[in-house]
Computed example of a mutant assay.
Amino acid sequence: MKSIANKRKAARTAKTNNINNGATGWLFAAPWIIGLFLFYILPLVVSIFFSFTSYSILQPGEFIGFQNYKELINDELFFKSIYNTVYFAVIFVPLSIIFGVALAMLLNIKIKGMTIYRTIFFLPTLVPHVAIAVLWMWMLNPGFGLVNGFLDMIGIKGPAWLGSEEWSKPSLIFMSLWGIGQAIVIYLAGLGDISDEYYEAAEVDGANWFQKTFHITLPLLTPVIFFNLVMGVIGAFQQFTLPYTLTQGQGKPANSLTFYVMYLYDNGFKYFKMGYASAMAWILFVVIMILTILIFWSSKRWVHYQGK
């Protein structure tokens, strides 16, 4: 009888301890859960409602159904911002992957002082976007900038860069490529994870550098490329700080640097058309979700994992 009573007492004690441990865990997680609800879930739900209203921050607004979405269809600047954003994403994302992988492979070579070179390539990512904008505005100045000065030295007349509607977006892409150090570090980690046994077996079979690169390195690096592709697409469609700083929020010249998120920000906080901005935000959300799903779907065909 005593043994049965002791077992029941031990079970009750264990149950009490589990409840206390669970309560302690929820208590420690409570700040994060509250923050998730207040700053993510609640604004998400409210923005859905606002997208169907004429809410303008200063006034409560009225429910207008799909009117905001209908107005977007007739908004020329809305489509201009889409064009600018897609133009940037289509060119920048592939180039960032190509240059990122190439530089990572160069920085993966085992030579003396390689740590210093890696640090140099990573440093631009630590520079604030405002400082980057000021630096490149000076370097790309058509009159006294370093870039056009160098081009003049070799007999080439440089363009107006940021002052030209034709060259403004390529200039922004060039600036953004200057700050891909974070992606390079991720590629370096992926390269370090590839086993040397693959290369040793390839050398035994007489494979050269190109064969090892295209049949071993790149296929086994595809999981990292896949990650950077997803993050690059999301980041490209959310481009804001650098073009906004470069143009003081005006998107000049001729709105060639008015990106989608910039126009969304202007509608919400400059023109106080929060309902209109919420509709734009949800369109962006749907587009990014569709693109992300397509990338995940296509990954089955080209992403290769070690051991599979």
Rank of each mutant, 00 (worst) to 15 (best):
P43F: 03
S54M: 12
S96V: 00
N84V: 05
I57A: 08
D75R: 10
F52H: 06
V46D: 05
V93C: 01
V45Q: 06
F79S: 01
F88L: 13
L72W: 10
L38A: 10
L42Q: 09
F88K: 00
Y87F: 03
G25L: 13
G35M: 13
T24C: 11
W26Q: 07
S47K: 09
I82Q: 03
F28C: 01
F52A: 10
N74P: 08
T53H: 13
N68M: 15
A29Q: 12
N74R: 12
K70G: 05
N20Y: 12
I64S: 08
K80Y: 03
S96G: 01
V46L: 12
L42C: 06
A23L: 15
A29R: 08
Y83R: 06
I64E: 14
N84C: 04
Y87K: 02
Y83D: 04
W32I: 14
P60G: 10
L44S: 13
L36A: 10
I97T: 06
P94A: 00
E71P: 07
I34A: 11
V90F: 00
N20D: 04
L95Q: 01
G22Y: 07
V90L: 08
S56K: 12
F52D: 04
I48N: 03
E76I: 09
P31F: 02
F52M: 11
F39Y: 09
L44K: 01
G61K: 08
V93D: 00
V90A: 07
Q59L: 13
S47L: 08
T85R: 03
I82H: 01
F37M: 13
I48H: 04
G65C: 13
F92Y: 05
A23Q: 11
F50V: 06
V46M: 09
I57G: 05
I33M: 12
E76L: 09
F52I: 07
E71T: 13
I48D: 01
F49C: 02
V90K: 01
G100S: 04
Y69I: 14
E76S: 13
I64H: 13
G22R: 11
I41Y: 07
V46S: 07
I33Y: 09
S54W: 13
S54G: 12
L77T: 11
S81H: 06
